[in-house]
């Protein structure tokens, strides 16, 4: 038996995984999708811009009068609502993530990746990196529009850097959640609907109106749901005001969402897909 000739099998070195290299490859793939079909990004960034204009120009006069005693009105409301719109921009982008994951799954290309000797998580990290970059492009566009219509943040360079870093953390967390949502959906349609709560939750937070203007039950929900501390933190950082305990609560939520999304995604990716 010991002398039996054996076919030259792959050397052990060939069995090593290269998660970073594979993730970079997969990220390039997703960025290429994005560059080739810019309309997808434009549609995703369109929604928050429409909401921004709607809330500032249609509701802004009345809402602005409601949130402050002063004569601020519309111009004050721009300042108030932009953090919520930024969060909505991220939510809109991750809806795109869920859709593109679901498309991959229906296309059969994921089955090819599964039968290849590659670091499996790279398929998912590719989507994550692509989406984070896409979210930042969208955030830059939305911020540009906000500045054009009178958003005047008080943050200095430090505040801007902190805001950027904080939004990166939020994006990262929501993208991982969305990667799981995209996998759990069996169709592209479901994938575009499942992240809907992420778009709606900012409305039930301190994003559009202060929570103390809400009825008791709703107010309780709004104060304890994760988007309120996230919005309060971005608001504080952008306006150069103290963020207080909101910052830690927000980071805690993000860590929880990111970890949960990551573990859920990994489990879903490892499961068997009968077809």
């Amino acid at each position: 038996m010991g002398t039996a000739p054996s076919l030259p099998g792959p050397a052990p070195a060939a069995l090593r995984f290269h998660p970073l290299r594979d993730s970079a490859t997969m990220s390039r793939r997703n960025l290429r999708h994005m560059l080739r079909y810019p309309s997808t990004t434009l549609v995703l960034v369109g929604m928050p811009i429409v909401f921004l204009l709607l809330f500032v120009y249609v509701f802004g006069g009345a809402l602005g009068a409601g949130i402050s005693e002063g004569p601020g009105g519309r111009s004050e409301y721009v300042t108030y609502v932009v953090p919520a719109i930024l969060l909505m921009t991220i939510a809109s982008t991750v809806q795109g993530t869920a859709i593109s994951i679901a498309m991959d799954l229906t296309e059969g290309i994921i089955d090819r990746f599964r039968t290849m000797h590659i670091a499996r998580v790279s398929v998912l990290t590719g989507h994550v990196v692509g989406s984070v970059i896409q979210a930042f492009l969208s955030l830059a566009i939305v911020m540009g529009v906000a500045l054009l219509i009178g958003f005047r943040p008080g943050a200095g360079l430090g505040g801007w850097l902190a805001t950027t870093g904080f939004l990166a953390v939020v994006t990262f967390a929501l993208v991982w959640l969305s990667v799981a949502l995209g996998q759990v959906s069996r169709s592209v349609e479901t994938a575009s609907n499942l992240p809907m709560p992420l778009i709606l939750l900012p409305f039930l937070s301190s994003g559009f109106v202060p929570t103390d203007s809400m009825p008791a039950g709703l107010r309780w929900f709004a104060e304890y749901q994760p988007f309120t501390p996230i919005i309060e933190t971005s608001r504080g950082l952008l306006m150069d005001q103290p963020v207080g305990h909101h910052g830690w609560v927000a980071l805690g939520w993000c860590a929880l969402i990111a970890l949960g999304g990551y573990l859920w995604s990994r489990r879903l990716f490892g499961r068997e897909h009968p077809s």
């Binding site: 290429r32 080739r36 296309e107 059969g108 290309i109 089955d111 077809s275």
Partner: peptide, 9 residues
């Protein structure tokens, strides 16, 4: 049986 190519590329 079902094509496993990336249609967007």
């Amino acid at each position: 049986q079902f094509s496993a190519v990336d249609s967007l590329l």
